[in-house]
């Protein structure tokens, strides 16, 4: 009896171990595969020169700039709105039917395929609002797309703040707004940072919705037309060089750069959140 139980235990453990190993292996294999095929195509010129097929230039600087521009603009629009909405839903709204409906709507929004957001952005932002193919049209469309993530993640972060902080602050005669800004929001920063990381991931990875709204012009926008120019992001570029030009050296090199940028941005956001938690002494 005992031996059988031990045996079962052992089999189960090995199975779990095997599954986690498999997951890690796939990831490592994929990264190694992409990097090993991409690295030969990467050199200083590749990441610092413009892209012009007629002059035989295949640099991706415009795509790096375009990607960062789109990320920053999207976050600048979506984070304030999303965090404010989450604050309203958790701190101020009377918990009831209306709030449940808003939550349901946000969750449904998260399940809509991105091409539909793209189509909506194309019709509404590009055509109706006459924004054209531009960073702004792209960022607004992507904002709507990442809003549910930001709202839900921030809500979770706010709800997980120890309720005794709220009580303690109010008992000292603080108003609700003071309590929010001085105690609750600082404690929720790590959660909000997670929301930002997830949103960046979606912006970076998106292609369909971006082509429809931000277009695919592979040029660095002029400084005075930063938001009104069309840009091409790295993901869109990847799609184009792979499928339209069949240039797989460029494609894998771009993919490698893309992964490096994602890793760097995540590291940055994590470090920022860590710094704040350290200061609070919660780590």
């Amino acid at each position: 009896m005992r031996r059988r139980r031990k045996m079962k235990d052992w089999i189960l453990k090995s199975l779990i171990w095997f599954c986690s190993l498999l997951t890690v292996l796939f990831l490592v294999w994929m990264i190694l595969y992409i990097v090993s095929r991409g690295l030969p195509g990467i050199n200083w010129a590749f990441i610092t020169t413009p892209y012009n097929l007629f002059r035989n230039q295949t640099g991706i600087l415009p795509m790096i700039v375009g990607t960062l521009l789109l990320i920053v603009t999207t976050l600048a629009v979506a984070v304030p709105i999303g965090v404010a909405a989450a604050i309203y839903l958790t701190e101020y709204a009377r918990q009831g039917r209306v709030v449940r409906m808003i939550r349901f709507a946000t969750e449904s929004l998260a399940g809509i395929p991105s091409i539909i957001y793209g189509l909506f952005g194309y019709i509404f932002f590009k055509n109706t609002l006459h924004l054209g193919f531009s960073v702004l049209a792209g960022a607004l469309t992507l904002s709507i797309m990442v809003l549910p993530t930001i709202v839900r993640t921030t809500e979770e972060a706010l709800l997980s703040v120890n309720p005794s902080y709220r009580e303690g602050s109010l008992a000292l005669g603080a108003t609700r707004l003071q309590t929010l800004f001085k105690v609750i929001l600082p404690s929720a920063i790590p959660g909000i940072a997670t929301a930002v990381i997830l949103s960046m991931g979606r912006v970076i990875g998106e292609t369909a919705a971006v082509i429809y709204t931000a277009g695919s012009v592979a040029k660095i926008p002029a400084v005075d037309r930063l938001l009104t120019s069309s840009v091409r992001t790295l993901s869109v570029h990847l799609y184009m060089v792979a499928l339209e030009e069949a240039d797989f050296v460029s494609a894998f090199a771009t993919a490698t750069i893309l992964m490096i940028i994602i890793a760097l941005l995540n590291l940055l956001a994590n470090r920022f959140a860590r710094k704040i938690t350290d200061r609070q002494g919660m780590a």
Binding site: N162, S164, G168, A171, G173, A174, K182, P186
Partner: peptide
């Protein structure tokens, strides 16, 4: 003023905890 059942200092420095009330 009120002191609660479980100690509930804010996640900030000792100084900032005490200065919280006067500051607000």
């Amino acid at each position: 003023g009120m002191v609660f059942q479980k100690p509930n200092p804010f996640p900030m420095s000792i100084y900032d905890n005490v200065a919280y009330g006067p500051r607000i």
